[in-house]
Design a protein around this nucleic acid. Structure first.
Lengths: 311, 311
DNA sequence: GTACGGACACAACCAGGAGTTGTATCTGTA
DNA sequence: TACAGATACAACTCCTGGTTGTGTCCGTAC
């Protein structure tokens, strides 16, 4: 299937004849005829009935036409997604299942007319570099990493504090607890194979470990969250931390438990970052939406690393 | 933009390296390299950063990837729409704005998983032929045309009686009436330039004219419903008939009036037609949906042509 | 430090697709 | 019967897109 042929098909269907379509596309009538014939050969069906005064769609052609239009629209959107100057708002999130993704879904529901693209960069360093170069328009990150303050042309606002939860299998010692205190976690094996050293996310857990004497194992290869959840579900002595708003796609019968952590509640401080001079017209809309949606962050009884930029 | 290049891009992004993508696509690594380079040239951005042990997506590449996948899905749907044997349910309607289109929208809302294609054929003769040949799976029509009973392998069920309404401009003599009787319409100019002689739709209005002594002008070129509505809105002595469930996209300030017709109420008897032996798995679902949604047809005080197949 | 392996890019070559021009065919109309 | 307007077919050209062969880069192992 060739997009040029599809474009030709749509032009011919709209014009009702090959001649006019050929003029529109700036090719000869014979070229249109050959493109349509090739498309018909590819699809295995006749799309037009040729008549002495034009060409009209067959039933198959009628059915194919809206799909062809949608195909061209999709191609246009794909091209637009990387067109400098007028591309969709491009936002970096830390993980596709975390709270920032949820915020972006909410934003999309509230403003379905705004084109969005979501990317996932390595860490806040990459995000800040991308923001300053204009490669992305905004980023949800915990700012800043220790000892690395944000450059002054990058602005940020704290938009969501996501409480951490303990995730255990049904046979874990804490499985039936309605909540656990941070102190209770000392001595328990907490496994987080996804942590990448050097990221601000790793720094967060480093501080959490140091502040409360926990033991977090980041060893072993990361086979993805499915494998992690599988292992946690089956291993009685193993637990892991998870953002409280993480969406799990998991069979309910595996018996995974999500247990709130208290005294204090560690929260992950998601901030929105953007460039001071970013001219993208949708950026103020996103900031306004997040400001309106911003909820109970900085609440009492919570913990964040001391390098976290306050509200 | 070439779909083969897009397919190659997705394969390379999934594999993380060109070599493996090349193996999957059964081409050489050099061909993959050239395809990606051509795509990057077309788009004007770099999609991969080449490393000594593979290729990883740039930020632009990350943003482009979901659009590329969607593009390939759209291409698949387009091809599937004309694939014999396993194509979407294909239904013929008399007009895109009439009641059957509304029924199909309802059906789609109720069963979004069922792929649908809607076509518009010339008349019931074309629809029956298409049903018998398998080119379409179902059709909404008023059955049958006078003197042409349905063949025995085509079944039908009356699904909706759509009451006709009179459409007038604000300056029409009947504009302020809350309803009009059929008898009142005698002598008024009713203009329906869209009627195509020889169709069952034309036969319906022929019978309506003959039965009640109306005058319906079908003269003049049909410039589309927009032009019709424009003329009706501006011409005090002109009115037209319209299906009571027709969706008008019309500025409210034009003052068009939709007036119910009574004594009796002419209704357009939409039936669903399908082939006795059609094996499409979605056809029973559609029939079931319509049976459940079927409402007050065949009600007292209505009029249909005497060739209409009864309930 | 060097050699090797793995991965991508560049160059040369070749075949086939896609465009053009020219022409035939069909059909409604004057 | 001739003509106008539309599409299809044929022959030719050109350039795209593939393959093979080779070069370059970089991480790793010895």
């Amino acid at each position: 299937m060739d997009l040029a042929a599809v474009r030709t098909f749509v032009a011919a269907a709209d014009a009702g004849q090959f001649q006019e379509a050929a003029a529109e596309l700036a090719v000869t009538q014979q070229a249109v005829s050959k493109r349509i014939a090739a498309l018909e050969r590819d699809l295995g069906v006749r799309l037009f009935t040729r008549t002495p005064r034009g060409a009209e769609l067959t039933i198959d052609g009628q059915a194919f036409l809206p799909h062809a239009r949608e195909l061209l629209r999709a191609a246009g959107r794909a091209v637009a997604s990387v067109r400098p100057g007028s591309r969709p708002l491009r936002v970096d999130v830390i993980t596709s299942r975390g709270a920032p993704s949820g915020l972006m879904r909410d934003f999309h529901r509230a403003h379905p007319e705004i084109e969005l693209d979501v990317v996932m960069l390595f860490d806040i360093g990459a995000a800040v570099a991308a923001i300053r170069s204009g490669a992305i328009d905004a980023s949800f990150r915990a700012v800043a990493a220790p000892g690395r303050p944000l450059p002054e042309d990058v602005e940020s606002v704290r938009v969501l504090d996501e409480p951490l939860q303990l995730l255990t299998g049904p046979a874990h010692a804490l499985a039936s607890a309605r909540s656990v205190t941070v102190a209770q976690l000392a001595g328990h094996r907490i496994w987080m194979p996804g942590i990448v050293p050097g990221t601000e996310w790793a720094a967060y857990y480093d501080d959490l470990v140091a502040g409360f004497g926990l033991t977090i194992e980041a060893t072993g290869p990361n086979f993805g969250s499915d494998a992690l959840l599988d292992t946690v579900a089956d291993t009685p002595a193993l637990a892991t931390f998870m953002g409280g708003q993480t969406r799990l796609v998991w069979p309910a019968d595996h018996g995974l438990r999500r247990i709130p952590v208290t005294d204090p509640t560690p929260v992950y401080p998601h901030s929105l970052l953007w460039h001071r001079d970013n001219p993208h017209p949708a950026l103020p809309t996103l900031r306004g939406h997040l400001a309106a949606a911003a909820a109970d962050h900085g609440a009492a009884g919570t913990w964040v690393p001391d390098w976290t930029i306050p509200r």
